[in-house]
Design a protein around this nucleic acid. Structure first.
Lengths: 205, 205
DNA sequence: ATCGGCCCATGACAGTTGTCACGGGGTCCG
DNA sequence: CGGACCCCGTGACAACTGTCATGGGCCGAT
């Protein structure tokens, strides 16, 4: 908390939110927002260029989402701490974040004052995870879906009939129905649509 | 822009966003955020108590959503300007907002600086509507769905089978299927799930 | 009072969906 | 090598879904 301020990068696709969070952080004397992005694309370059200490990333972003960007950043810049700030407190997101080496995970429901505190914590090498979500994530278990099942469910999200899904994935209709059936069973749903929303809400995509 | 600052109320269910927007607005010398809510409930009372000039409302909120709150406020406090600030730029939302007598509608994608400007505009009696969205709203046409059809589609959003929807709405399964069929035809979908997402994305709920 | 709209319901039909059993193909691991 | 797991596919069956025709009741507008 002495000497140079913490150099922060802020990535969120909603400009107004980005501006708000930046205003919030700039109130703190020991934190300085030196770079803003509207996507995860180009994160590593920006981190290198601006000498970023902490990268604050939203998850839902176009092109490259926050979790993918975090994973990529870990490869090239493991010394830069990552703090995920997201709307959706989904257990699967937290799990993926942990696997990506993220040091903090905060949902946008939490009080504004805690944001700066989380930044300080991850910068100091500590962690900053939403406790409720952490518990939920640990109890929720692994993502049981296979790659194909996830693809099929993603296509089913918008209500497409089997034939369209099959065409989109270059599969036989029968195969698609088999994958759907397997997925439905794994998430304990009774309909493809139900299975799709359940999987989405759990962050299993 | 002289004398007393504009007295603003801020309603958003995400505490961190609320704090960010408040920080943003407090940077302006002629604007003062004097009250914050996490829901549309109790809006009229808060407006009366704090002598609010401009109420900034999010749409997606628990209990009472921003559009319903705006409509209710119009009844009791027509002198208080309402500015909607939302994530989702759906044409149906803007239409409902206009019907509720809202004076401004801004999506969170727009640059942060424009928020304060929008507040000043609606306070001055002018309007502040996202131009792209306004055009889309005018060209999109009215919501063609009946009340029942909307209810049924809302239930269908999570993928429930007909029997569950019927039970939830105290209807015969056959009736539910009729309503679904009508709705599917109106939104030009081919599946209930598809119809549900289309209707949702248009703000027809 | 007649028309139109919305609501509710029933029955019947073709098409789709969910499930199962079964086959084949790969890979990775003990 | 056999086994486990994933992938792809087929065929068949019961259940569900989307559509249509048809009927009734309740409004509000013409």
């Amino acid at each position: 908390m002495s000497g140079e301020p913490i150099r922060v990068l802020l990535a969120d696709d909603q400009a107004m939110i980005r501006g708000g969070l930046a205003a919030l952080l700039d109130l703190e004397t020991d934190i300085s927002v030196v770079c803003q992005l509207d996507s995860g694309a180009g994160l590593a370059e920006a981190v290198a260029e601006h000498g970023i200490d902490v990268a604050i990333l939203d998850i839902e972003m176009p092109e490259v989402d926050g979790l993918a960007a975090a994973a990529a950043l870990r490869e090239t810049r493991p010394d830069c701490a990552v703090l995920i700030v997201t709307t959706f407190g989904r257990a699967g997101y937290l799990r993926r974040a942990l696997e990506a080496g993220v040091r903090g995970f905060v949902v946008k429901d939490t009080p504004a004052e805690e944001l700066a505190e989380a930044v300080r914590r991850v910068h100091a090498g500590a962690s900053a995870f939403d406790p409720d979500l952490l518990a939920e994530s640990l109890s929720a278990g692994q993502n049981p879906l296979t790659e194909r099942e996830r693809q099929v469910l993603r296509c089913a999200l918008d209500g497409s009939p089997v034939r369209q899904i099959a065409k989109a994935l270059f599969l036989s209709p029968g195969t698609v129905r088999n994958h759907l059936s397997a997925a439905i069973g794994k998430v304990q749903a009774s309909t493809r649509a139900e299975a799709a929303v359940i999987a989405r809400d759990r962050g299993w995509l």
